[in-house]
Amino acid sequence: MCLGIPGEIIEISEERPDLAKVSVCGVKRAINIGLLADDPPEPGEWILIHVGFALSKIDEEEAAAALEFLESIGKAYEDEMAALLESRID
């Protein structure tokens, strides 16, 4: 099962505007936001992430609801978090 994980944009890379530092459940990662070039996210906004790529922007309420749901399904959520931790975008 493939899931999207909500994350909050912390900062956008000045050298690589297609990369952003994102906090996902307290884990900070570099995420590729290039797919959102038409409506780029800004610090403080939430995005839906799958394997290191931002798929869409979401609001904070959607992010909270998604996190609550993901935590309730257990193993699939743990697998997605493991994939996020293993993904590296430099």
Rank of each mutant, 00 (worst) to 15 (best):
3 L>D: 02
74 G>P: 06
7 G>H: 03
73 I>T: 10
27 V>H: 07
16 R>S: 13
85 L>A: 03
44 G>Y: 09
25 C>N: 13
81 M>Q: 06
81 M>C: 07
9 I>Q: 04
67 L>T: 11
34 G>C: 05
18 D>Y: 15
27 V>I: 14
73 I>L: 06
19 L>Y: 12
62 E>C: 07
20 A>Y: 09
13 S>A: 10
1 M>Q: 10
21 K>E: 14
27 V>F: 05
75 K>H: 09
21 K>C: 04
33 I>P: 02
22 V>D: 01
69 F>Q: 10
61 E>G: 07
85 L>W: 00
4 G>C: 09
67 L>K: 09
49 I>S: 08
67 L>Q: 08
50 H>T: 09
47 I>Y: 02
74 G>F: 04
62 E>G: 08
37 A>V: 15
31 I>E: 01
85 L>T: 03
79 D>F: 13
70 L>R: 02
28 K>I: 14
66 A>L: 15
41 P>N: 05
58 I>W: 01
90 D>S: 14
11 E>M: 08
5 I>C: 01
17 P>H: 14
67 L>N: 02
88 R>F: 12
9 I>V: 15
47 I>D: 03
62 E>K: 11
14 E>G: 06
76 A>Q: 13
69 F>S: 11
22 V>L: 01
69 F>E: 14
89 I>Q: 09
46 W>H: 13
80 E>S: 12
39 D>S: 15
53 F>P: 00
42 E>T: 10
86 E>C: 04
35 L>A: 11
71 E>K: 15
16 R>L: 15
71 E>S: 12
7 G>R: 03
60 E>H: 05
50 H>N: 14
62 E>I: 08
21 K>R: 15
30 A>R: 12
26 G>N: 01
19 L>Q: 10
27 V>S: 08
18 D>G: 07
35 L>K: 15
13 S>I: 11
27 V>W: 00
52 G>C: 02
